[in-house]
Write a protein that binds this DNA or RNA. Structure first.
Lengths: 190, 190
DNA sequence: GCCAGCATGTAAGGAGTTACATGATTAT
DNA sequence: ATAATCATGTAACTCCTTACATGCTGGC
């Protein structure tokens, strides 16, 4: 019996689940949909947000573990809206998990760099298009992150979350510099 | 019949498969084991290398698609060593795939940042330990990448691959700057 | 003697995606 | 009108990891 409960809890304690729970720890009561949108604009710039189907599954699993509670809000014609919020057990679990699991190494999947890497004799114009799109996305990410750290910066209780936003911005500024280096190389041509 | 062949080929055309094939495109005839080690120190710094079980599976799938050929080298007592090399069809596929699939957005999983983000009231000493470990790993990555661009830099035919290494280095330098920012914040304490 | 690295592979399961499904509202 | 966004959910599948399994070689 106790064994089974432990199993349920352990299943919820993956980095992705903890990241979502960490967003809920800001205190809001949100739907899976809202949680995903919010997560994309904050955590999503340094920890990939899964597809919505995965988010809903994680929320159900977090609830089964007792880390969140949900409340059904009936809607007309549509499926019910389900609002989730973090529990005390959830906050507790967050702290314990965070301190006792040493972080895994950085995982990066840079699809745009992969195109440049594979391009032994691809049309430079196609490549330049890919790089310019990537630069746009990076600039958008930087804008989000700068808003984030401005919002969080004032509040001393969220100094660590503000530091994360600034850290992420440093990474994306590095990415931007790299993109521009690559674009310059393409301009220099053959 | 033709339909089935297309299916086999399509199955091999995932970004991960193409990344591995891209490493093989350097021309070496290598075992799955060697490929994985090499990939980790180069591509691995900007595109996560999967577990060895996955690498072996990808190589078999690439071979089924005709993008690689393998040669068994019998070993005494051990299982045979299987050496893979890229085919002309493989090089062709690489170019076509690379140019026609627009790259997906950057996917980042920064586990160390996640710990800082979750830490509302975690012991700063534990956190500092995590950050210092991460700094070590980042410095090691930078060393690999600087070696890479030095090696590739001379060869004009590999300008693009050298640019990728420099680009990746920019990202990791950003990460390093962010790590130091976060460490400074922890020192300033409460 | 023991552990790490070399070298491959299987088995089981978790993490994640895409596509399908529904239906309202809001903007172009 | 048509598309996008809101809002949730299921089904099917792929990707990827961890653990198990084997056995040799080289360093401490």
């Amino acid at each position: 019996m106790i064994d089974h409960m432990d199993d349920v809890k352990r299943a919820a304690e993956t980095p992705t689940a903890m990241a979502l729970l960490g967003v809920l720890a800001f205190g809001a009561e949100v739907s899976g949909y809202d949680l995903r949108q919010w997560t994309r604009r904050t955590v999503g710039h340094w920890y990939t947000t899964p597809a919505h189907s995965q988010v809903y599954r994680e929320l159900r699993s977090l609830e089964a573990a007792g880390y969140t509670t949900s409340r059904d809000v009936p809607q007309m014609g549509k499926p019910d809206k389900v609002l989730y919020s973090i529990t005390d057990a959830g906050r507790e679990a967050l702290g314990v998990w965070s301190a006792k699991h040493p972080p895994k190494p950085l995982a990066l999947k840079h699809h745009t760099m992969l195109r440049l890497f594979l391009a032994h004799d691809t049309d430079p114009a196609v490549l330049r298009g890919f790089l310019e799109d990537h630069r746009e996305q990076t600039l958008a990410a930087l804008e989000d992150l700068e808003n984030e750290s401005a919002t969080l910066g004032a509040d001393r209780s969220q100094r660590r979350q503000a530091a994360v936003a600034e850290w992420a911005a440093e990474i994306h500024r590095g990415d931007l510099a790299g993109t521009e280096l690559a674009l310059k190389m393409l301009d220099e041509g053959d």
